[in-house]
Design a protein around this nucleic acid. Structure first.
Lengths: 128, 128
DNA sequence: CACATTGTACTAATTCAATTAATACAATTT
DNA sequence: AAATTGTATTAATTGAATTAGTACAATGTG
C-alpha cells in the first residue's frame, strides 16, 4: 500500500486521494480494478473509515473511480493513464468563479455567462 | 459611500474591496482620484481602521490602487474601467469549458461541478 | 518645529470552517 | 442470517481567518 505523513499539513484524505490517483496515473491500477476497501485502508493507516471514504468520494466526484455499497470501489473505465480530467477542470472553474466573486459579479450573471459558454461549446448536445 | 452587510459571511474587508472595485469599474472613481481614508471608512462603517486597510492592501496588491503613508490612497492609472477584469473572467471560464469538451467530460457533469463551485463561493448570499 | 493626519505593523481575542472520529445505517455478497 | 461493503449523521477538535487594540512611521499643515 502507500504511507501517510501525519505531520503534514495536507489532510489525510487528501494524501489518500493523491496516492490512489498516482497509482492510477502510472497504470499500477487499471480501469475495472478493485480498490482496497475503505476499512482496509483505514485499518492499515490507523484512521477512521470515513477518512478513507472521503478520499474515495472525491475520487468518484472527479471521475476516477466509482463505489458501490456492499461491493466495493473500482477504477473507472474512463480513468486511463494520466488524464487530467475533471480534477484539473474544477480547479480552473474554481479560480474563475473566485475571481468573479472578488470582482463583485452577481451570481445569476455569472451563471448565465457560464451557460452561454456551455451551450456554445457543447453545440449539438442535449440537456437543459 | 457604500454600505456593509454585517450578517454576511463575506468578510468586511472583502466587501469593502468589492465595493471600491465596483466604483472603479463603473467609472465613479477615476485614475488619480483620492479614495476615502482608511479611518474615514472605518468610522463610517464602525469597524477597525485595520479592516479598511486590509481591503486597500488587497486592492493595491491587485494593482487597482496605491497607498502612501501620510498622503492617502489613490486609484491607479492602470485601473481604467473593469472590463479588462471581466474579460479575463470570461476567458478563464471559456478556457475551462473548452478543456472539459476536449477531455470528453459530459455536459451535465460539468454543469454540476460548476454549480457546486458556485454555491461554495457564493455562500455569503448577499452582502457585496 | 510641533502636531495632526495618513497608512501600517504587531499582537491578541474570537469566530468559523475544515478535519477527523464515533456510531449507526444501508446495500450487496456469501 | 451474517459478514462485508460504502455512507450518513453527529460531535470534538484543531487551525486558519477575521477583527480589533494599540503603537509606530511617514507625510502634510500651521
Amino acid at each position: 500500500m502507500f504511507s501517510i505523513n501525519f505531520q503534514s499539513r495536507k489532510p489525510i484524505y487528501d494524501q489518500i486521494y493523491s496516492n490512489v490517483l498516482k497509482q492510477i496515473a502510472i497504470g499500477e491500477l487499471q480501469p475495472g480494478d478493485k480498490l482496497p476497501t475503505v476499512r482496509l485502508i483505514a485499518s492499515e493507516l490507523g484512521v477512521n473509515p470515513n477518512t478513507a471514504s472521503k478520499a474515495y468520494q472525491m475520487l468518484e466526484r472527479d471521475g476516477y473511480i466509482y463505489s458501490v455499497v456492499g461491493k466495493g470501489s473500482f477504477v473507472a473505465d474512463s480513468a486511463n493513464g494520466g488524464e487530467i480530467k475533471l480534477g484539473e477542470i474544477r480547479k480552473k472553474l474554481f479560480s474563475a468563479v473566485k475571481d468573479a466573486v472578488e470582482y463583485g459579479i452577481e451570481k445569476e450573471i455569472l451563471q448565465k455567462s457560464f451557460n452561454e459558454t456551455l451551450n456554445t461549446l457543447y453545440k449539438g448536445g442535449m440537456g437543459e
